[in-house]
Design a protein around this nucleic acid. Structure first.
Lengths: 302, 302
DNA sequence: TTGTACGCGTTATCAA
DNA sequence: TTGATAACGCGTACAA
């Protein structure tokens, strides 16, 4: 009963006589022994863990992606660390260093604006030692892989819908909480111009400018907008049309229910996980930037 | 430059000459060295990690608690594992064993029905080696600590409100997705009886029985109910009153906005984290069952 | 103030 | 088929 033999039965590695195997198994049972993964990790030089970094899991969108990734990785024998980094670059870099110290096998970061230099340098430094996948973010670096939903296409879907329904002027409504807002807003303006539509943008807190169609940055914004509009006597969809974004549960519960851009979160999480797994298998993937095309789910608000 | 000296500057332990310290620091800088926490963990026999086990982070409630716990623990130097266990006891037990192998310093499990024997035995076995805190769950065991919101009080708050507003018959509405439903339903019935109110219960899918007041198991259920009621020509709050539960973001966006039972999630997460921390400090806490008293946030639906 | 040497619980190599 | 034994990278007595 040497440690070597025990290790062999635990890992089904090497050859061991059926009789001794039984003996070991029994002894293990009796002594409520639990394998020490940290020792194993040290010896094997890998931990079978992934770091999930998000600004805030309380966000519907991130909670769903985090869930999808954790589940898929768990199926492959990996365990997930959860990091709520907030939006401060220094803090995010701190988390990244911590995860590197923990020797995670890979990292995935959900939807951070890639603007803060502290974050960026930490990320590309990290990319030298572990595979990194970004979702809803874009960073051009050799060994970091990005999965983005195609927000340009998503916004265009919304504008087209408003156009088809006869709107004359559309407004991009947002609380500008996310880095994706800048792009969306711009795309919205361009699409309107192409279609000959009037265009404005608003922050929710500014009070609504006059428009007969609204493309919102999220369902939450859309819901708030409908309430705000209602308070001014503007009824949806009779007087104005509203398109939400993300097609969350909320879209079913507003009145009227929201027409919303759906970006297939589950699919996105799945892609991220598969990419992670492929990278961990050592596969070399050539395309390090994939775009997810959204669809429009039509309900009553537009 | 021996490993011992390096270790000393890294941990500020022992005495080391300022000059050598500088020399070590410079060398570290130059060689982009990253401390190996797994080796340290093995040597120190603790990992500074907590396991957060939840059935599903996509649930608003659990995402918020997980967030709160992760943040507080991170502040204390701990890292969090995220486990989406689902509701199957065997699978939950599997996750618990895995976390034990990873040598987590503590575990917190969010809102699982403590009915499955596989879960229970795994949990009390685990409690022999690490501190365990349960939130929204109840398990009488020596070294397991529970934090529960007082659902009895919460439901009573709702029923009282309906009573005060003049309802004659109330219905407990739920999709019966959670283990807490059984208790809530029963409490609702008792409260109604005490007040001389008619009482029924319904699953959302059964079609609404006739009542002029509804206490719901969640805001989501309340939102669905309002829509279903509307389809039958029953207007809220004119024809019937509806009370939601959890006071989530959703409560602001339904029409009418929901009166909802608020259980102060942030507070609950805070308590869980503090308790965890106290336990990790080796403090012996006598009361292993604390109840959080909810309040009623009044809006327009009741 | 610094360095040497051992232990933490595994896996892996090599003899037996 | 099995058992010593050397890593893995860190803290830490203990000695220098």
């Amino acid at each position: 009963m040497s440690t070597a033999t025990v290790s062999r039965v635990l890992n089904n590695s090497g050859a061991v006589k059926a009789q001794t195997r039984r003996r070991v198994l029994d002894a293990l049972e009796a002594s409520d022994y639990t394998l020490n993964e940290v020792a194993r990790s040290l010896a094997m030089r890998h931990t079978k863990t992934v770091a999930i970094l998000t600004t805030d899991v309380r966000e519907f969108y991130y909670a769903h992606i985090a869930y999808g990734i954790e589940q898929r990785m768990a199926g492959a024998g990996y365990t997930a660390f959860l990091c709520n980094t907030g939006t401060d670059g220094a803090r995010q870099a701190e988390y990244i260093r911590a995860m590197l110290s923990k020797r995670v096998s890979a990292m995935v970061v959900l939807g951070s604006s890639m603007r803060d230099p502290a974050l960026i340098t930490a990320l590309i430094k990290a990319s030298r030692s572990v595979p990194i996948v970004l979702t809803n973010a874009n960073l051009a670096a050799e060994r970091v892989f990005c999965i983005e939903r195609d927000d340009a296409a998503g916004v265009r879907l919304g504008v087209d819908r408003l156009h088809v329904r006869g709107c004359r002027s559309v407004c991009y409504a947002s609380d500008f909480a996310f880095h994706s807002d800048a792009l969306k807003r711009q795309v919205c303006a361009e699409a309107c111009e192409q279609l000959g539509l009037g265009h404005t943008a608003m922050s929710l807190w500014d009070g609504a400018p006059r428009a007969d169609g609204y493309v919102c940055s999220s369902d939450t914004v859309a819901a708030k907008l409908i309430v705000a509009l209602g308070a001014k006597g503007v009824r949806v969809p009779a007087d104005a049309l509203v398109v939400g974004y993300d097609n969350t549960d909320l879209a079913q519960f507003t009145s009227p229910p929201l027409t919303s851009v759906d970006s297939d979160i589950a699919h996105q999480a799945g892609m991220a996980a598969e990419m992670l797994l492929a990278l961990l298998e050592g596969e070399t993937i050539s395309e390090n930037h994939v775009l997810i095309t959204p669809t429009l789910v039509v309900r009553e608000s537009a």
